[in-house]
Amino acid sequence: MSIVLLGCLLLSFIISGCSLEWESQNETTIAPGSVDSESKLRVIFLDVGQGASQLLISPTGQTMLIDAGNNDREEQMVEYLEQYGVDRLDIVIGTHPDADHIGGLDAVINTVDVGKIYMPKVQANTKTFESLLRSIKNKGLKVTTAKAGLQLDWDEQVDVTMIAPVVNGLDNNNMSAVIKVTYGDTSFLLTGDASSASEKEMIGSGVDLQADVLLVGHHGSKSSTTLSFLNQVNPEYAVIQVGDNSYGHPKETILERLRKKNIEVYRNDLQGTVEITSDGLDYQVTTER
């Protein structure tokens, strides 16, 4: 898509009033709906191959989707939502414009009701990004800028805080929206493709990065999960959203770093969809295989 066409598309958003607002674990076989979700937070790391997508269901049934895999996972994403009984997403977050994160979001938005959508102030001159913008426009939605310091209104029992991007002007990966989810004494840090530059900014911001569950940044690339960042987060569990790929993800350097800290690691390529359920005190981990 040409820069002129993208400019026209964004201009049409503004004219239409739909502008982007740039401002003890128990491992079992997963069976959707079989886990008692009453008074529990469910964080489901969906298996979308070499991509990323997390579906969150709150103790009161509120829903949130962070990313939606690549373009070839559109039908699978719609099937996942049906599988988990989701016909409305209260919050949708596109962490950054890379296709393996936002590729399926257009189909999701076309299929279900959406409350609010958040994306960072960064664009991409791609057909994937154009298709997502068109779906947002056609649904009559407005995009709120994803940035550090936002408190997301989701479930009064669950604190959802956006802690990155801290600064503007970084590359797409380092502009990734990073979300910390806290329920009772339990917490999750969901990092998109945030890399070392963003990790450094997060550390420098003084925000509390400690979390029990870490979504390992950028599919286990060595550009993310620096030792200083990992020490700050100090998780018990780590999830790597990865599939067959030519990048060598996850890198052995990162796996060894996690092993040295005795962090329990779960991977979509080995275990399929991974669900971590919290009652505010403890966790239950279930895997597809």
Rank of each mutant, 00 (worst) to 15 (best):
M1G: 09
S2E: 14
I3K: 14
L6F: 13
G7E: 05
L9F: 00
L11Y: 08
L11N: 10
S12F: 06
I14W: 14
L20F: 12
E21T: 13
W22Y: 15
W22I: 13
N26A: 10
E27P: 02
I30W: 11
A31C: 07
S37G: 01
E38V: 15
V43M: 04
V43E: 07
S53G: 14
L56Y: 06
I57P: 11
Q62L: 04
T63N: 12
T63M: 13
I66G: 01
I66T: 11
D67M: 09
A68G: 15
G69L: 06
N71G: 01
M77H: 07
Y80I: 12
Q83P: 00
V86L: 10
V86R: 09
L89K: 08
I91L: 07
I93A: 03
T95L: 09
T95C: 04
H96K: 05
P97Q: 05
D98Y: 13
L105I: 10
D106S: 15
A107P: 06
A107F: 07
I109F: 11
T111Y: 09
T111F: 08
G115S: 01
K116W: 04
K116E: 13
I117K: 01
P120S: 14
Q123E: 06
Q123G: 04
A124E: 15
K127E: 11
K127S: 13
E130K: 06
K137L: 09
N138K: 14
N138L: 13
T145C: 14
A148I: 01
L152S: 04
D153I: 15
D155C: 13
Q157E: 15
M162R: 04
M162D: 01
M162L: 07
L170K: 08
L170M: 13
N173R: 11
T182N: 14
Y183P: 03
F188Q: 00
L189C: 09
G192K: 06
S195M: 15
E199Q: 12
K200S: 12
S205F: 01
D208L: 09
D212F: 00
V213S: 06
L215Q: 14
G217D: 10
H219L: 03
S221W: 04
K222N: 09
S223E: 05
S224F: 08
F229S: 08
L230F: 09
P235K: 00
I240G: 03
I240C: 10
Q241M: 14
Y247L: 00
T253Y: 03
I254Q: 01
L255V: 02
L255Y: 01
E256V: 00
L258D: 05
K261G: 00
K261D: 00
K261H: 04
K261V: 03
N262I: 00
I263G: 11
V265Y: 01
E275L: 12
T277F: 07
S278E: 09
D279I: 11
L281G: 06
D282L: 00
Y283A: 08
Q284V: 08
V285I: 14
T286P: 03
E288C: 10
